[in-house]
Write a protein that binds this DNA or RNA. Structure first.
Lengths: 186, 186, 186, 186
DNA sequence: CATGAATGAGATTTCATTCAT
DNA sequence: CATGAATGAAATCTCATTCAT
């Protein structure tokens, strides 16, 4: 049954994702992944023929998970605010996701296939932010002189690294400052 | 002779640093490091008893290299601008440094000893920024309502992740936007 | 199948035991053990995760083999005589066992886990001898003034080291003298 | 200077001897031996060109040390008693000697050169005991029917293994029983 | 003699992957 | 599909020994 197949695959991806978050790609062992799921390590190869295949699936999963922070809100300002809040919420609820994402981004630099996945998501995110900003300008929320591309890039850069190399206190401060710069606070 | 000894150590650290930048901690092989230096891999253990010791030395080297971006300038504004420019310059000249730094930060999450090194540098950097900002406020360059801690955190967060998961074009945009937000442009 | 699994384990233990008898713990190489069985050396780790685990298994095997010299005989005197004869027979047929036992005893001094195994067997043996002697005294075979504990200790000490540092001729002499002291000869 | 040379050699032998007693031949590392003496490990090779050479020197030293338990006493009985007492004293004062001796005996089985040293000492000891016993028979201390060769072998065998695989309590018991069998007690 | 540096050979251990059952 | 067994390739680390200084 395909559904069962996909269930198993999904469970394996989840297990691998958590292992990567805990120990990095460096510490990813197929046997451990299989153990976490209660599967024989050889059976894992039925679902993912090679380690690389599993890693790719994890990267895809992680980027998609992140992309699902769909904001709600009527106005662009509300949307952006909601977007940032959802991300902050995710940071607290599932910090593993951000660690795994950063692992993926570093690996993307050496692994062309992963690079494609990661870049695609980055582009989509950038476009999404640009659209919100443009709409906001149209509606008079932000000045017309705003360099939307640059602001989008700055938002992404800032969010990317929070939660990594920064204490959660500093992370919160940085996000707060971002909101101030974007004039989202009131 | 100590100097020769330290030369070799230093050369090994450099070789390891470049290997990490190219292949990540994941792809760090002692044999390759020794080969790059033209040394027998057993000799490497003469200088660094374990792989972990070498890794720690690399992390120390990388953080110190980064900490040496000492800004020049009379006024706080000039200092901050110079600081950001130096970093941007370093990004272009030696992107490896930022990759290695990010590797180190990820690894810091699992390795307590590396964590100490990384955290120390982060704190020092944060303090350095806070001091500049405070001085700038005193001199009337920035509003007294500026949340210096938050701004420092935001600067760090933003710089941390540029060059990773962002194309160099986007990186430049983000840095430019940062300067705008900091009112450093004119 | 468990039986096959245990077969392989057992074969590996045997191979290791013979290697130890030939070359001592000093000369025990996992590769050689695996080669003797016709197995890849990595497969050995499938059965014994570490060298230490294999060594422990060998020590257990050797002590158990020795403990199986169950004597036959109706009376205590016959039992003791039979016991000593069985041991002498074992000495001739399989001197390797005694060498390995002595290796184990020396190693027991530094290795707590092995020490437990070795001590347990020693205690059991001592108790076994004491019981025979006590029964013999009860039946009038030995004087009531016999210090059973001391005699048991002496028997063990003497047997322990025969075959080691003694030529087989001298070993036989020593065993013969022991029998005389125990008045087992007629 | 030869005397200094020999001093150094001797110190190295002593250090090696203690290392062997603590960790067995298995755990003997030239670097550690040199460290114990405060010598550079390369310098050790000036005194002993190879590890084997040092090992041989240790074995020689150990056997000679043991051979120096020269008994005092007028009559053969007194001599034998004194001999056994001296050995028991040595066992308590320097158990390391007996451990190292047993290590040597095991190694003698694989190493022809060491075997010669060990056998020589064993023969000398045997002869020494036989002589005492013969003299004792002549003086009427023991029965003429005593099998001196066998008794000597038994004494050696028993002493050899005491202190190894036997608790010190059991060792004492065994030695006591040996004295009883030899009618040395009063 | 003393020493730090260097090395070759080898030992244990790990792990992704394959395969027969 | 599931699984234990097996393996090749490699990685880290150890250590006796040599050598230039």
């Amino acid at each position: 049954m395909t559904s069962k197949n996909e269930d198993r695959s999904q469970t394996l991806i989840l297990a691998a994702y958590h292992t990567i978050a805990e120990k990095g790609f460096e510490g990813l062992r197929l046997r451990e992944v299989a153990d976490r799921v209660g599967l024989n390590h050889a059976t894992l190869h039925h679902y993912f023929p090679t380690k690389e295949a599993l890693v790719q699936a994890v990267v895809l999963y992680v980027t998609q998970r992140f992309a699902q922070t769909v904001p709600i809100g009527e106005t662009p300002v509300e949307q952006l605010r909601s977007h940032l809040h959802l991300i902050q919420q995710l940071m607290q609820e599932e910090p593993a996701l951000f660690i795994a994402l950063n692992e993926a981004k570093l690996r993307a630099q050496r692994d062309p296939i992963i690079r494609i996945t990661v870049q695609k998501q980055a582009e989509a995110w950038h476009e999404f932010l640009v659209n919100i900003l443009r709409e906001g300008i149209k509606q008079g929320n932000w000045s017309e002189s705003l360099d939307v591309e640059a602001v989008a890039s700055a938002i992404i850069a800032l969010i990317n690294s929070t939660n990594i190399g920064l204490s959660s206190k500093r992370t919160k401060q940085a996000m707060q400052q971002l909101e101030r710069w974007l004039e989202l606070n009131d």
